[in-house]
Computed example of a mutant assay.
Amino acid sequence: MSAPITQDLLTIPRKLPEGGRTNIVGLTREQLRLALIEAGTPERQAKMRVGQIWQWVYHWGLRDFAEMTNLAKDYRALLAETFEVALPEVVTRQVSADGTRKYLLRIAGGHEVETVYIPEEGRGTLCVSSQVGCTLTCSFCHTGTQKLVRNLTPGEIVGQLMVARDDLGEWPVPGAPKDETRLVSNMVLMGMGEPLYNFEGVRDAMKVVMDGEGLSLSRRRITLSTSGVVPEIARTAEEIGCLLAVSFHATTDEVRDRLVPINKRWNIETLLGALRDYPRLSNSERITFEYVMLDGVNDSDADARRLVKLIRGIPAKINLIPFNEWPGAPYKRSSWERIEAFADIVHKAGYASPIRTPRGEDIMAACGQLKSATERGRKTRAQIAAEAGSQSVANSPA
């Protein structure tokens, strides 16, 4: 780290944002630069200050401006008065027998979301939420039984990664030997919500996550999963650039209409047309088709043969997901013999067809099982808004 930098701060106007301090987490570099200028940072210094603060927050994981020692003391005081480095609150932390960790996180307004960390040999994947609840009502997904409350902010999305790094003790220690080991080496936007219905929030969050001078996850280690929001698919390649996964789950419109209701708006033919035009499509950056295996619904040999015919010409792999059951679920998991037979047909057609190992089932952290287990998740938006409003009044200073 560089030595402290002296600067002239004789007359910096101290502008407090309305409603309190501004959270730095989730601001893009340009947004942070503009916020610093608004707070009184001389414009000629703003870019340099962004770089310094960025490294403290996202490389070293620092939360206290007073400890940012390459900034002058007066400037640190200005930052502390105007800004904060705030993360979601960890309500509960559960650890599965297989090492999977599930965090129930509380965000602004008292809402709650879940984040899951999945350790694997040589890598670790963080499954991140993009919305409180979900609007898609996919019939096999537990999250879909919880009404959509709101989109997450970029800071709330980035904050999930930072919370996990806190818990895993993954921030580097100043002066310690450099360690390139990454416990969180991959991120999947496969938690609560449809990421492409929160496009701008997800895009800005991923700009922060992918920045090479901070959290530094490369775009090829980030996978965004969509149920098929066709108009945003091309934008995903152009403005985010991460890998793409599609919650496919059926080989006929009749079945997919029931499993993934968004199919009634953009059917299989329309979705596959958008995927064939995906700007980054190549053998090295294949599209992942996620396919949950439901007994007697979508798991026949005929389904497997239809699937490979439908995706012909698209560089792809098929992730076969044994259905993760939840209380009241209307489906059952396909037998292992049926899943393996399905996988064999797909594999012989030339597509990778890994069968996903269920993880974290004992703590309801497996794919399709996420749902904030509180009464709040079952209340209406009006009830939640009313409660949040009364809470803010109750917490306001007299």
Results as ranks from 00 to 15, higher is better:
Phe289Met: 05
Phe289Arg: 09
Phe289Lys: 10
Glu290Trp: 01
Glu290Asp: 04
Tyr291Ser: 04
Tyr291Met: 03
Val292Pro: 12
Val292His: 06
Met293Asn: 09
Met293Gln: 12
Met293Trp: 06
Met293Ile: 05
Met293Gly: 11
Met293Pro: 15
Leu294Ala: 03
Leu294Ile: 01
Leu294Lys: 08
Leu294Gly: 09
Asp295Gln: 13
Asp295Leu: 04
Asp295Lys: 15
Gly296His: 03
Gly296Trp: 02
Gly296Leu: 02
Val297Pro: 14
Val297His: 07
Asn298Ser: 07
Asn298Glu: 05
Asn298Ala: 05
Asn298Trp: 03
Asn298Lys: 08
Ser300Gly: 04
Ser300Asn: 03
Asp301Cys: 11
Asp301Phe: 09
Asp301Arg: 15
Asp301Ile: 14
Asp301Leu: 14
Ala302Leu: 14
Asp303Phe: 03
Asp303Arg: 13
Ala304Val: 10
Ala304Ser: 12
Ala304Arg: 07
Ala304Gln: 11
Arg305Pro: 13
Arg305Lys: 15
Arg305Met: 06
Arg306Trp: 01
Arg306Glu: 01
Arg306Gly: 03
Leu307Asn: 14
Leu307Tyr: 15
Val308Lys: 10
Val308Asn: 09
Lys309Ile: 01
Lys309Thr: 15
Lys309Cys: 05
Lys309Leu: 06
Leu310Tyr: 06
Ile311Asp: 08
Ile311Trp: 10
Ile311Phe: 06
Arg312Asp: 14
Arg312Val: 01
Arg312Phe: 00
Gly313Ala: 12
Gly313His: 13
Gly313Glu: 10
Gly313Asn: 13
Ile314Phe: 13
Ile314Thr: 08
Ala316Met: 08
Ala316Asp: 04
Lys317Thr: 05
Lys317Trp: 05
Ile318Leu: 12
Ile318Ala: 09
Asn319Trp: 08
Asn319Cys: 09
Leu320Cys: 07
Ile321Ala: 09
Ile321Tyr: 08
Ile321Glu: 08
Ile321Val: 13
Pro322Thr: 01
Pro322Phe: 00
Pro322Ile: 00
Phe323Ala: 12
Phe323Met: 09
Phe323Lys: 08
Asn324Met: 07
Asn324Ile: 04
Asn324Glu: 07
Glu325Phe: 00
Trp326Pro: 10
Pro327Phe: 00
Pro327Asn: 10
Pro327Trp: 00
Gly328Trp: 00
Ala329Asn: 04
Ala329Gln: 02
Ala329Tyr: 00
Ala329Glu: 04
Pro330Met: 01
Tyr331Cys: 05
Tyr331Ala: 09
Tyr331Pro: 13
Tyr331Val: 03
Tyr331Met: 06
Tyr331Glu: 10
Tyr331Thr: 04
Lys332Glu: 03
Lys332Ser: 12
Lys332Phe: 00
Lys332Leu: 03
Lys332Trp: 00
Arg333Asp: 01
Arg333Tyr: 00
Ser334Gln: 05
Ser334Lys: 06
Ser334Asn: 07
Ser335Ala: 08
Ser335His: 10
Trp336Ser: 12
Trp336Met: 14
Trp336Glu: 15
Trp336Gln: 14
Glu337Arg: 12
Ile339Glu: 10
Ile339Cys: 11
Ile339Ala: 11
Glu340Tyr: 00
Glu340Asp: 13
Glu340Gln: 14
